[in-house]
Amino acid sequence: MSDLFSEDFVGALTSLRIEARRVPRGGRHAEHHAREPGSGIEFRDYRAYTPGDDVRLVDWRLYRRFERLFLRLLDEVRDLPCYVLLDTSDSMWLDDARRSTAARQVAAVLAAVSLNQLDAVSIHPFGADLGASSGTVEGKRGLHRVLGFLEALEPAGRTDIRTSLGKFARLPQRHGLVVVVSDFFDDAGLDAVWQAVRGLRHRVALVRLVAASDRDPTIDGELRLEDCETGSTVDVTVTDRVLTRYRAAVAEFEQGIEQIAARRGATLLEVDIDRPVLPQFAGLFPDGVLRV
């Protein structure tokens, strides 16, 4: 274990759960209850027999009592593949990689929770393009593999969320839960974010990493601001008026992300990179469960 993922951090993850409203068909036996009955071991209900039903499910004891055929319906328990799309662009590594650290911790939390639930997890870093993934990790013991993968991540250039998520969408993946962990600072703006998120054929959760300095920068005077990803610069005289317009732009951006999440039916989580990630996540999981 490293400083990034301490024993305490990993240990605290076991109490969290992700609960999906719908689970994709197929897959492995896990802990997510499917909406339709299946071949599990827990009894759910009876249903009158109709021709064509599997006669193996007929409850013969009821037939003996009522002389009518009933089927025993059992719960279907499946896994929920979890795909974590992790932003590793240069902006995430600015200021001692605070944003990247928080993002990787978020990814670790999601991976740990999923692995605890016997779900399959894969981490897909992206920046200017979709990077090499961690591969599918299964089983609780796979967490160390995920953590090792997260530790080894490097800056991946500028953010091109549309290209990256577009490539992911074209991968032959079983439907599952896609969690996009990013600051969503794409130079192409919110339109690119919407185009990227819209193309994902999965359950989607957006984890936006925010910093207090994003909303309320503590700079003043004449500055040459340099985009850490593109290198482009803007000379600005920071005045109260400019700051007011800046805050308005940030608020508009945040509102835009919320609208994108709402239109897409995605869960939107915000993680403050200036605070410890785990307590924030505990707060985002009511009763320890995050329903997506």
Partner: peptide, 18 residues
């Protein structure tokens, strides 16, 4: 006199502001 250089994660908001 050249202004001080400050690296920021994005210029999206600053461009809008100025």
């Amino acid at each position: 006199v050249r202004p001080a250089v400050q690296r920021v994660p994005t210029l999206l908001f600053w461009r809008r502001a100025i």
